[in-house]
Design a protein around this nucleic acid. Structure first.
Lengths: 236, 236
DNA sequence: CAACCTCTTTTGTGATCACAAAAGAAATTT
DNA sequence: AAATTTCTTTTGTGATCACAAAAGAGGTTG
């Protein structure tokens, strides 16, 4: 591997009780999600082990998990990388998100309580705050926290790991989109979702989630931006 | 770990070019899918390494992948096992399958060709044959092959790994259900799906897939059978 | 008999190593 | 200068090992 661009990955402190493998997974997951690793940039186990100052074992296990989640791909020539995005794949990811997340929201609806509603309101305020601060990363993370909390209201929910995988695959791209585009006016679909939940209105909830996802992604999915993103990843 | 029930896992030949880790993954994945490992039965890395006659490394990587796919779970006390099934989880898995697979079918529809239609016809005949032979495992596998081929008609399909994870989670239960229940009359929803495809009828395709899944699972999801299955797994 | 304690064994985890294959660099040929 | 060959380095893979923590077994006490 010849002169790869340097890896600038945010390292966090490892808490007690957290294994090295779990920590490595979280660090790398965050690096992928926040676009710190450019798509197409080859990764090696030894390089990551050096950057994170651990042996190859935790790296290998974390990579296996991230590979299974489709955050990383291993090519037939054994190159490990964050996959490049294509317009068609982007569309599929978005539409699959809409299908899966509106389903997950509906499956969570019977379990909603007033306490949970308030919790979601608080999470929605955090999104507004991050957006006002023009903090792209916090916006994405708090938006995901809102959705995660909503869907996990159903204790038997099986959709969440699937949804997390889709988020992971979209993460790098959305991170770039959020950090480079001007603020634009959006309808607050979360408030619509919360109203639908309060009214126990299944159809309105589905429509609000679908619109939220569609609109959250629409400005990020323009051909111009997509082209710019792919160009950026081609320079690695 | 005290006197676990013996592991009776089908071993296959490893082909050239297939790494030990990939082979181990396939063997264990099949063992889970076909119910060879009872839910709740604790597994250890060393035991599996002995049964499969490999070192712990490929076992660990395969387990990490199967864990990510939710085929196995690692408890906080580090027990590795096939998760036990509950009625609520079963319902969630089924309904999520319906949401995701009908979506995947519709996303594949624009890519269907006459050649693919013929291929699907052939795969449907294989299901009929397996069913006539009362071969439960072949029935499940050929049914999955049909669905897999249908959805993968879309080269940009992102749903397939998600769907495979749901199949894996349902696998042990469906395997038991298929092997223990009497043959019963079912409407051939695959033929309805193929007709919808030929007519490029999106709604009919959705309805056929949803009905296929619902009916394929309905007889397996009776409270009596679920109880029997959970009892069987409690004896391990 | 149940609860608790102590000792022993097992286990997952992380580190390290060796090796074959792949990738990269250098040299040679066209 | 481009293509090909050869040599060197890097890399993923699988095996092995050590260790702390967890689990299991056995003994003691109430």
């Amino acid at each position: 591997m010849n002169n790869p661009s340097p890896l600038d990955i945010t390292l966090t402190d490892r808490k007690d009780g957290v294994t090295i493998t779990e920590w490595v997974y979280e660090v790398l997951r965050n690096a992928v999600m926040s676009g710190q690793i450019l798509p197409g940039r080859s990764l090696t186990i030894r390089e990551l082990a050096a950057v994170l100052n651990v042996s190859s074992m935790p790296i290998r296990e974390a990579l296996k998990k991230l590979g299974t989640e489709r955050a990383l791909e291993v090519r037939e020539n054994r190159r490990i990388m964050v996959p490049k995005m294509t317009a068609m794949k982007f569309n599929e990811l978005c539409d699959t998100r809409i299908a899966l997340e509106s389903h997950a929201a509906v499956r969570a609806l019977p379990y909603m309580t007033d306490t949970l509603l308030e919790e979601l309101q608080t999470l929605d305020l955090a999104i507004d705050h991050a957006r006002a601060m023009k903090n792209a990363e916090a916006t994405i993370q708090s938006n995901q926290a809102f959705h995660r909390r909503l869907y996990s209201a159903n204790p038997h929910q099986v959709s969440l790991p699937l949804i997390e995988s889709l988020w992971l695959q979209l993460g790098p791209f959305l991170r770039l989109a959020n950090s480079q585009l001007e603020e634009h006016y959006i309808v607050d679909r979360h408030q619509e979702a919360l109203l639908a939940i309060k009214n126990k209105d299944t159809l309105a909830l589905q429509l609000a989630i679908a619109a939220d996802i569609r609109e959250g992604i629409a400005f990020a999915g323009t051909p111009e931006l997509l082209h710019q993103f792919i160009e950026a990843s081609s320079n690695s």
